[in-house]
Design a protein around this nucleic acid. Sequence first.
RNA 1: GGUCGGGUGGCCGAGUGGCUAGGCAGAGCUCUGCAAAAGCUCGUACAGCGGUUCGAAUCCGCUCUCGACCUCCA
Length: 494
Amino acid sequence: MPNFKIYNSYTREKELFEPIVPGNVGLYVCGPTVSGESHLGHARPYITFDVVYRYLMHLGYRVRYVRNITDAGHFEEEGKEAEDKVSDKAKLERLEPMELVQKYTNLFHWGMRLFNTIEPSIEPTATGHIIEQISMIEKIMSEGYAYEVNGSVYFDVKKYADTHAYGKLSGRIIDDLLETTRDLEGQNEKRNKVDFALWKSAPPQHIMRWKSPWGEGFPGWHIECSAMSAKYLGDVFDIHGGGMDLQFPHHESEIAQSTIAHGHAPVRYWMHNNMITINGKKMGKSYNNVIKLTELFSGNHPLLEQPYHPMVVRFYILQTHYRSTLDFSNEALQASEKGLKRLWEAYETLKQLTTSDHGDASLDIQVKETIAALDACMNDDLNTAQVVATLFELVPIINSMKGGQIQQGTLSTNTLTLLKQAFKTYLEDILGLQSVQESQGDKLDRAMSVLIDIRKEARIRKDWTTSDEIRNKLAAFGIMLKDEKDGSMSYAIE
RNA sequence: GGUCGGGUGGCCGAGUGGCUAGGCAGAGCUCUGCAAAAGCUCGUACAGCGGUUCGAAUCCGCUCUCGACCUCCA
């Protein structure tokens, strides 16, 4: 019986995870808005929930993972009135809206692939579910919690709050929200500023538009996630994830809509990842401080001292608990780069290790306990930071077995097998890490072995000049030769 | 202004009422023809001030300070 505890944002407590349908898990994560290029900040939730997905599967659950693509325009451009951001930008770039959406969707997928995230089971688009959204809105209207004004439909938050805990998820108090309302200039169509749109009437110049019972328009701010999650995961499902910044109003509104439409709350466990910051400030469009994925991988950005491999970024994100902020800096990324290299090399070393069968009990116990701690870390609200730290504790043991500081045969065959399994399971299957080193071409390998052989011969002759010349010249363009203790040589490309 | 969450060694970052993670950087040593790698050892950090306690960085209060959300935002 899994003992997986999740911090539920809704109750603000760690709770034992128990699925609604035994053995099955429904997981919904708010996906990207494909009106622009994905940036480093976007990487966090998708990598975090990729690990959630992987871990649930590791625990033996059958998981349906739904992550939407927001491709319909219900956005606002800074400093402009509400308008369709997608169509707005499309005009600038002289592209069809759907062409633009496709372009950024592809780019998003490209980034996710490099991060080695597993594709969701279903990736529904907002534009593909207009009908579902309209019928959900109709249901809410028939329940008396929405009203139509000039072709737009709004959710009556005040009425909802009279009988429901509106604001519980995000810790908001409805009266406070209503009060601030009076001071601010309200949007005159709404009964209260707290109300949110379920459907917006489209102005004539608006390119993206659909027919509805209320005239031509487009879906409101939050309805797509409610409609699509219900369609694919049911009226109530297990886990809903997303960034902390979506807690209000997005997720709060989802709860309200779904509660009215279905008669009960939609989600059992809410999970929210914290933000990536840069110089202490949240990385986000509005702050104008984003580093796009393409820039991150190429190093082509004023703030970047070098390019960073997607696996380094993934590792960097997983070295922190998902509910903590994570501050970007070159120093931090470079530390992750080196750390990952060391960890991965130990893993490669481990795969080659053998041992004889008379183990030393104390080392066996130590290793076994360390391995057991890995599960405990993950079960404690997905503490990947501690998983990484724990794996690092095993690194000196692995390297010492290779280097001879630990005698051959000190670890039992059994425990060595466990250790190998643990690294494979945690590093590859759960954390989803891969080798940073690109696989070298066969021809390069052969060419290198020629150089290595020449150098070996030189060393036998104690011809240090030739030996050093080969090593130094290769090092000059980033190929590092390593003389192993047993006389063999290996190379690595920086 | 309201609500919420932080302040941990040079940097990044876990965590816990007493057994003082981990990574990176730094210092010393071992190994090595040299180098790299690896191994060993080291720094006794938890914003400040009070309080509770046998004992707090971990609990409580206050102060300072940073941030998130309150508008699209992962």
